[in-house]
Design a protein around this nucleic acid. Structure first.
Lengths: 110, 110
DNA sequence: TGCCAGTATGTCTAATCTGACATACCATGA
DNA sequence: TCATGGTATGTCAGATTAGACATACTGGCA
């Protein structure tokens, strides 16, 4: 579970030392990352719900598929601003966002 | 109420044409701005709750009072990333954020 | 196996955001 | 009235992020 979490973060572009000192992320940082992951997951679920591909979404955004992939991966070059704007562009509203934040992360839960 | 809302946005640095065509903010933009305002208000309330001044908060952040003022004003040069990080640094958590988002805005409500 | 749609990753340049500083505003109390 | 503490606004240089493009991975199916 710790390892899984770390993998997710690394995939997301966070250069984490190695497993042990993973904890020199401060509490704030951890909360921030978790929030970003929640939004990213929310975005992916929302897109899938709409039955759209990343490419289709990218086109609608006037952006590129690669950028959408990074959004959903909560990559470090992706801001929460971008995640929020993207969700809104796909029709989500403020309450949907709040819902995503209250949702327990599905992946590193097991 | 419309006028009040507009004033808030202008104070926040959004160049809004004039009252009438205020509506050429798209839905997405409006939702995004509202979200930012909610976080900004949340930050101010959180700080006041802690009985701190903007200057004190700035010092704790390693930032400046002017930046804190802009955060609380949801100024356009302030990202939601900064707002979230700031809230987390003051001890808020993801659920607190969700709560802020579900809260009806106090100001342009009347 | 070889294709293909969908997704992921790396790296550029332009645009945006950050903290700092200077300065202005705004109440309240002497 | 004028200090003073707290808050707001404008601007700038350095840091970070956006979209684009190239390219690589992945799973399914002929």
């Amino acid at each position: 579970m710790r390892a899984d979490r770390r993998r997710r973060l690394e995939r997301a572009g966070w250069t984490v030392g190695d497993a042990g000192d993973f904890l020199h992320l401060t509490d704030e940082e951890r909360r921030f990352v978790d929030t970003k992951l929640a939004l990213a997951e929310g975005l992916r679920r929302w897109r899938e719900q709409l039955g759209m591909t990343q490419t289709q979404v990218a086109k609608r955004f006037g952006s590129s598929q690669s950028r959408v992939a990074k959004m959903e991966a909560a990559h470090r070059t992706v801001s929460t601003d971008l995640l929020l704007k993207s969700l809104f562009r796909l029709g989500a509203n403020q309450r949907d966002i709040a819902r995503f934040l209250n949702q327990k992360p599905r992946v590193h839960a097991a």
